[in-house]
Computed example of a mutant assay.
Amino acid sequence: MTDPKPELDADTLAFAGRVFQYARMGHAEELAGLFGQGLPANLRNDKGDSLLMLAAYNGQVEATRAILEAGGDPELANDRGQTPLAGAAFKGSIEIARLLLAHGAQVDGVGDGSRTALMTAAMFDRMEMVDLLLAHGADPDFRDAAGKSAADMARAMGAQATPDQLDKAPRRGA
């Protein structure tokens, strides 16, 4: 028999909402202060989005940095299996992607899903992001669970430039 979950009061719920909003809106100083008081850097919301995912996805460079410096895990995927690097790739946030890679994000990381950041960038024709990820060792031949490569996904989405970009990319061991 399990104990029932404790009910959270309105003040606690409001505080949690504020913390996640700080990440979305880029309130780096407020987050850093809370981390200094013991707030866990890998706090997640009801969708599994970590503070880092929210900051990265919303292009909040300084908040992303503050969360990473407080121990935020760049590989912590949300409930859909998306990593912060994939979120940055989707949004085309080059500076965020560089920051995540510098703090240990795996360039071919897939979280609990099967789509890499390179696949996401290619699908949305983000050429500069594709170049960055390839320069950091992303494998253009990596396949998802259905056997599709980044170029396959880009073609399926109607991307104009990235399929050729990926076809011409250097291959490992070549």
Rank of each mutant, 00 (worst) to 15 (best):
A169W: 06
A23T: 06
L39D: 04
G137S: 13
G104F: 06
M53N: 12
G81Y: 04
N58Q: 02
A154L: 05
L31M: 07
G173P: 03
T83W: 09
A66D: 08
D139M: 08
G81T: 06
A88S: 08
D164G: 06
A174G: 14
Q160M: 13
M119H: 00
N42Q: 05
M53H: 13
D164T: 10
R80D: 15
L99M: 12
L133N: 05
A121I: 00
G137R: 12
R155F: 09
S149I: 00
A55D: 07
M129D: 08
E75H: 02
G113L: 11
L34G: 01
S114L: 10
T120I: 07
G147C: 07
E7H: 00
A102P: 14
T12W: 03
N58K: 05
P163H: 09
E95H: 02
R126Y: 01
G113Y: 08
M153T: 11
A55V: 09
G158A: 12
D144W: 01
T2M: 13
D125Q: 01
A63N: 04
R24D: 11
D141H: 03
R80G: 14
D131H: 07
A86Q: 12
A16M: 13
A66F: 07
D49Y: 14
G72C: 09
R115F: 13
M53P: 11
R44A: 15
M53K: 12
G71A: 07
L31P: 14
G158H: 15
M53E: 09
A159V: 11
F20E: 15
F35I: 04
F90K: 01
S114M: 09
L76Q: 15
H136I: 14
G72Y: 00
A55R: 08
V61R: 04
T116H: 08
A56I: 07
M127C: 14
E95S: 05
A88T: 06
L134E: 07
